[in-house]
Simulated scan of single mutants.
Amino acid sequence: MSERIFEVADDTFEARVLDAVTPTLVAFVASWCGPCTELRPRLSALASARDTLQVAFCDVDLNAATARKYGVRGMPTLALFTDAGLDTMRVGALSSSQLETWLDHQLTN
Rank of each mutant, 00 (worst) to 15 (best):
T37N: 12
A47P: 05
L46M: 15
V55T: 05
L53P: 04
T12M: 07
P35M: 14
F13T: 03
Q54R: 09
V21Q: 14
N63F: 08
V8M: 01
E38Y: 13
F57D: 01
F28M: 07
V8I: 12
A45Y: 12
P23N: 00
V17N: 00
D19M: 04
R73D: 14
T66I: 06
P23L: 00
D59A: 05
L39H: 07
F13H: 03
Y70M: 13
A30D: 08
E38A: 14
A30Q: 05
C58T: 03
A20Y: 09
R40G: 10
R42L: 15
V29T: 15
A20Q: 14
A49W: 07
T37C: 09
T22W: 12
V21Y: 06
W32Y: 11
F28E: 02
P41S: 12
T22D: 10
A20L: 13
E14K: 10
V72Y: 05
T24P: 09
A64L: 10
D51R: 10
V26T: 02
A67T: 01
E14A: 09
V17F: 01
E7R: 13
E14D: 14
S48F: 10
N63Q: 09
R16F: 12
T52Y: 06
C33S: 15
A45E: 15
G71P: 14
D51N: 08
T12R: 05
R50E: 07
P41K: 13
S48C: 04
L46V: 08
V60T: 05
W32F: 11
L62W: 03
A64I: 11
A67V: 08
L18E: 15
V60P: 00
V21C: 12
W32G: 11
F13R: 02
A27I: 08
D51A: 08
Q54E: 09
L46G: 15
R42A: 15
R50M: 02
A47N: 06
N63I: 06
A56P: 01
G34V: 14
P23V: 00
A65L: 06
A64K: 10
A9W: 05
A45G: 12
G71M: 14
D19F: 11
R73T: 15
T37H: 15
A30F: 07
A49Y: 10
A30G: 12
Y70F: 15
S48G: 08
R42M: 08
T24S: 13
R73V: 13
T24R: 13
V29W: 13
L18Y: 03
S31G: 10
T66Y: 02
E7C: 06
A67R: 02
T22P: 04
G34Q: 11
A27V: 11
P41Q: 08
T66K: 03
L53D: 02
